[in-house]
Nucleic acid binder design. Structure first.
Length: 111
DNA sequence: AGTTTGACTGGAG
DNA sequence: CCTCCAGCCAAAC
């Protein structure tokens, strides 16, 4: 029994990236979600890193609220200080350590 | 075809 | 709370 997922085909990778972008477009204003949640919702729970890569390099991501994606502890993306500003503008609160207060602002997409 | 690289994650110290 | 560190895995080298 396979207890690990199959390696992605390039076709599956393409679909995964489409799903990621669609999911990001659904994050409500003033909320955030995580790379892991998005990967799981797209059907590949172990591909959180690929979610990050998709948002970083996909041109379409520019048109989406990708600033609403943070890591599992509420950490904003490395080298993108504007992300915090954008989130605070829509009311997302940060803790003293510079992380999003996930207790209040995490949006968990319905499966 | 082998190695390195991350917008990641969970756990250890 | 913070800093490694191992595991992760498609992509880029």
């Amino acid at each position: 029994m396979k207890d690990y997922p199959d390696k992605m085909t390039t076709e599956q990778a393409r679909m995964f990236q489409d799903d990621v972008l669609n999911i990001v477009g659904q994050i409500p204003r003033g909320m955030v979600t995580t790379y892991g949640h998005i990967a799981a919702l797209a059907g590949w729970p172990s591909h959180s890193r690929m979610v990050g890569r998709t948002l970083r390099y996909s041109p379409e991501a520019r048109l989406l609220p990708c600033h609403r994606v943070v890591n599992v502890v509420g950490r904003t993306a490395p080298g993108w200080s504007q992300q915090r500003v954008l989130l605070e503008e829509e009311g997302v609160g940060f803790k003293a350590n510079g992380h999003v207060d996930m207790k209040r602002y995490l949006w968990e997409p319905l499966l």
